[in-house]
């Protein structure tokens, strides 16, 4: 099968849906400009014209309400934000309008709209340009929230999101855009609402969100060399959450780490830990452990970024602690390779 990057997979999903359905359009600040939102909107304007792929003024709230209006009247907007931080300006439209429009019209006005937002760590992006805010969205009834981590799921979930009759928040960690894998050519939707077990293992379950899936898989590779088997699960859809798959795994391994790509306190990791604990309390040998960002605005300087963000090494140490194994020799393991690859400014 041919291989695509995550960014190309997102793009291909949008292109195929735009070809299939003339009501789909893609817009947002910088969407048609030459930087192309990590390449995900490359060629859209050329292929579909400025009616279906366009830039906007810097007016997030209005453009989000505009998307609602268009969705109400039979169009399928895909609104793109180069950083989730800017989506905060549109929270009123999202939380007071989009999430409950169908509800307040007795189910007569579904809102088929997709909001794409780039989340997470960049390169010295600091306090206002590197948030994830996952629980802000999962907290609100009436929104579906997906956070694919593989090119296959990026394509499948984008197709599903565009075809969904409900509003879908599509969260993309910026470093995931380079991930490359085999991706099917046909336009098949991945189901919204199912988790994926990325790696089987008997010793401990890691439920990892967005970028932390990459770190968890890295930790699993390292620990496998020392005879420890991690099971790694990517929920893929954060709302609605596939608790069955998570609970089935934790019932077997009886130990669980939740690794989130966000602040810990009141974060999505709290929901994961609580949902798993409610289902698996009797089987757990230890309380579920949560990992995420330090409780501070994101520092700009890399020396502190590296302690702000957990990574595979953090996961290895928590595993050592929970299983009473190790400490393992991590000399020679390169933990910051993605960060070193990324040279600003986006």
């Amino acid at each position: 099968m041919r291989r695509l990057s995550f960014a190309e997979a997102v793009r291909e999903a949008m292109v195929q849906e735009m070809e299939r359905d003339p009501t789909v359009f893609v817009f947002g600040i910088g969407v048609p400009s030459h930087a192309k939102i990590f390449g995900t909107t490359a060629g859209l304007e050329e292929q579909f014209g400025a009616e279906r792929c366009f830039d906007t003024p810097i007016s997030e709230e209005s453009m989000t309400g505009f998307a609602l209006g268009a969705a109400l009247r039979g169009l399928r907007p895909v609104h793109v934000h180069i950083r989730v931080d800017f989506l905060l300006l549109a929270m009123n439209q999202l939380v007071n309008m989009i999430s409950c429009y169908n509800y307040t019209t007795g189910g007569r006005t579904p809102i088929p709209l997709v909001i794409r937002a780039i989340i997470g760590r960049g390169w010295g992006q600091g306090a206002q340009h590197s948030k994830s805010l996952i629980s802000y969205f999962t907290h609100v009834p009436g929104l579906k929230v997906v956070a694919p981590t593989t090119p296959v799921d990026a394509k499948g979930l984008m197709i599903a999101a565009i075809r969904s009759e409900d509003p879908v928040i599509f969260l993309e960690h910026r470093w995931l855009h380079w991930a490359v894998d085999a991706v099917p050519e046909d336009a098949a939707a991945s189901p919204i609402g199912t988790a994926r077990v990325l790696r089987r293992g008997r010793d401990l379950t890691v439920v990892a969100v967005s970028w932390m899936v990459v770190e968890a898989m890295h930790a699993a590779d390292i620990l496998a060399r020392h005879g420890i088997e991690l099971e790694v699960i990517d929920p893929r859809t954060l709302a609605p959450l596939d608790v069955d798959t998570l609970a089935a795994s934790v019932s077997r391994t009886r130990t669980c780490i939740v690794a989130d790509c966000d602040w810990v306190f009141s974060g999505f990791s709290a929901e994961l830990a609580a949902s798993i604990t409610e289902r698996c309390f009797g089987q757990l040998t230890k309380p579920v452990r949560r990992l995420g960002w330090a409780h501070t605005p994101c520092p700009t300087v890399r020396a502190l970024e590296n302690v702000f963000y957990p990574n595979a090494e953090t996961i290895v140490h928590v595993v050592e602690d929970m299983l009473g194994c190790g400490p393992f020799d991590l000399a020679g393991v390169d933990f910051y390779n993605h960060e070193n690859r990324f040279k600003g400014p986006f």
Partner: peptide
């Protein structure tokens, strides 16, 4: 303290009250 960087230069002592990277 190196935690804000170029986008958030501030020097309240000389009346430079802060810099925001979120437009407007």
């Amino acid at each position: 303290k190196g935690k804000a960087g170029s986008m958030h230069l501030a020097a309240p002592a000389v009346g430079m009250m802060g810099s925001s990277a979120v437009v407007a």
